[in-house]
Amino acid sequence: MTESLLEVRGLSKSFDGVPAVEDVSFDLQRAGTLGVVGESGSGKTTLARCILRAIDPDVGTVRFNSENGWTDLHDMKARDLVPLRREMQMIFQDPFSSLNPRMTVRQIIEEPLLVHGQRNRAKRLDEAIHMLELVQLERDSLTRYPHAFSGGQRQRIGIARALVLRPTFVVCDESVSALDVSVQAQIINLLEDLQKELGLTYLFVAHDLAVVRHICDRVLVMHHGRVVETGSVEDVFERPQQNYTKLLLSAIPSPDPDVPLRPLDRQALGL
């Protein structure tokens, strides 16, 4: 049996009295990939941010199985979180706005090392070169700026930056949504290869259900900030129990012209 890397219990967060995430609980297995799906406004991103403590949840607990054993993230001081941040990283959606245009690729990839106290210049450079190989970018990319790269290449740079600290847990927030289908396929393959090679655990936030089905082994369906259904990808996609999940699945257009789109009616389902 695999062990858990993360335990979330009763997590809630509201903004100005409007609930964004309500009473969310789940476990994340080490080396697994959990998909979080739902429409915009369902609370996917807020949930991801609460887990990483990028924002503070109102109530609830988040326990993380770190190198030094189980740690409660929710009641840690910001300063004490810093060493843990090495183990938890994020890959963002937009490969354009998530990279500083005034920094070279070398500076971008080395920055997390600097933040976490790696003062040895040669070691930083070695790490950066190694990361570039890992994400399949040319070595001469180091001296160039983000504008010189395509969207797919920039996303590789963002992945290199996220992985340079050797995290165990990576949150991918719509990390392939902004990419063309062929580039998307390359990045999905890369994420899967890296997971196998480095034993990564992914929390994969996405609105594209086909992508989630491909890359995840478990999935969490969110609606109005609550988890309405959770289970293995196969169970949820093949045998959805909840009306909201059925609605989402019925809305996916099939690439087969002989499978007509018949979206369910939200009102008729009482949603």
């Binding site: 289908v181 999905i188 393959n189 899967e192 491909h214 196969e234």
Partner: peptide, 16 residues
Amino acid sequence: AIPGVVDPGERLATIA
């Protein structure tokens, strides 16, 4: 290259 055409777990084909 579309996810969902191949079985989950299989590698996606890239255009190249």
